[in-house]
Amino acid sequence: MKITSPVIANKGKKDCTRMSRWKKEMDVMLKWRKIAVFCILGLAICTGSAWSEGKVAIIAGLPEATMKSTPTFDPLFQEMEEVLKANNVSWEYFYVDLDKAPDDAARMTLGKETINKVKAINPKVIIVVFDNVITYVAKQVEDIPVVAGYFFGSPESLGLPTKNITGVARRSFAADIWSIANQITGAKTVSMIGRNNFSMVQVKAGLMAKADALEKISGVRLKDMYLVETVDDWKKHIENCSEDLIYIVGTTMIMDGDKEVPSPELIRWTVDHAKVPVVGATEDAARDGALFSVVTSEGIWGKQMADMVIKIINGTPVSEIPMETVSKGKLLINAKTATEKKIEIPYEILSSADQVFE
């Protein structure tokens, strides 16, 4: 028979009581620790969502088929989408063919209809592309931040910025192009040609107003900018050109009856039939036969626009995001055309090219 002394028995009871209290205290501590961990995780998740999530509406001022069939636009939207995707921002495209509207009143109505469609997805920011979308769509929006880009008029001529609109403006490389043409071909005069639309009207007004200053910089005088809608008018201006240089500024939506003439076909025809050298304002132009182009980097343009969007979604007011200019351009040379036209390109110009098409 085992006998336990009262002292030992009492000590055992005290130890059990202490163990019980310690266990309860540990259970309480573990419980609160779990709650704290879940709170921290929840806060991190919520903060992450608020910091990076959102939906953006992208409004383009051309028909969807034209946008998707024109390679010039690919880098713009690809870089834009990459930045948005990296920041967990989704997007939806809206297309509005404002050029087909008969007058300003009809364009304003079309703009308002587009805004109503856009507001249905409740976007945190709207991205607008092209001058006409700024004028007839973006300026009718007052309660949603807007980032504008791929426009060709000056910000001042489009009334930018506003309290809810900022954006990235195009840098004009006209003086650079004409200066290089002067060095290569000796050109003293130039005529420009492009599609008759809202954006090109803005470009023409801006460049004609600066013709004297551009001539001082480049040594080349801008004589005129022909804005056409049909391939017949295009060909007439090319065949009758009396200037030393032709500068193609746009080839989209040039119509042959009810069909759009493919841009590569139009550029190739122009290069083959012009009596003077032909240069371009886009990468497509140089690739498809123009002697050279100095172009805005569409990819950089799209990235700068998307970076602005992320700033706005993350809480920066539009009023604190100033207008920017595309930060980079590139020189593209078509060596095959130079050979065909017996035009010698100086080594210092050729070696500075970002890309040479053989």
Rank of each mutant, 00 (worst) to 15 (best):
V28P: 07
Q202I: 09
V356R: 04
F73A: 04
A36M: 12
K13S: 06
M323L: 12
A209F: 05
A187L: 06
P75E: 10
T339A: 12
S351D: 12
I180S: 06
L98T: 02
L331D: 07
I246H: 01
I310F: 03
P161F: 02
E229G: 14
Q202G: 10
K124M: 12
K328E: 13
T72I: 14
D233P: 06
Q202Y: 02
T252E: 15
Q304P: 06
K303L: 04
F38V: 13
I144N: 00
K100E: 13
I313M: 10
I267E: 04
P145R: 02
P63T: 08
K55F: 01
V356Y: 05
V203F: 11
T282S: 15
V96G: 05
D99I: 03
P262E: 07
I127P: 05
S154Y: 02
V279P: 02
Y347W: 07
I3G: 03
I40L: 15
R21Y: 11
N122V: 08
V203L: 07
L207S: 04
P277E: 00
R287N: 13
G206F: 06
I40V: 15
V279W: 00
M108A: 10
S199H: 08
P277Q: 02
C46S: 08
P102K: 02
V137M: 06
A65K: 14
K235R: 11
C241N: 15
D103S: 01
V83P: 06
P317T: 04
Q202R: 13
V276M: 08
D272E: 14
T282P: 09
L245C: 06
G194R: 09
G61S: 11
V190A: 14
K342C: 07
T72Y: 15
I248S: 09
K11W: 12
I180F: 04
V318H: 03
E64R: 11
S297P: 04
E92Y: 02
I121S: 09
V326P: 01
M29S: 13
W269R: 08
Q140G: 03
I127D: 01
A65S: 13
A286K: 00
N122Y: 12
C39N: 10
A105G: 10
C16N: 14
K341V: 05
S69E: 11
I144D: 00
M29L: 15
A353C: 08
K23A: 14
A187F: 03
D272Q: 12
R107K: 15
L110H: 05
Y150S: 15
S179C: 00
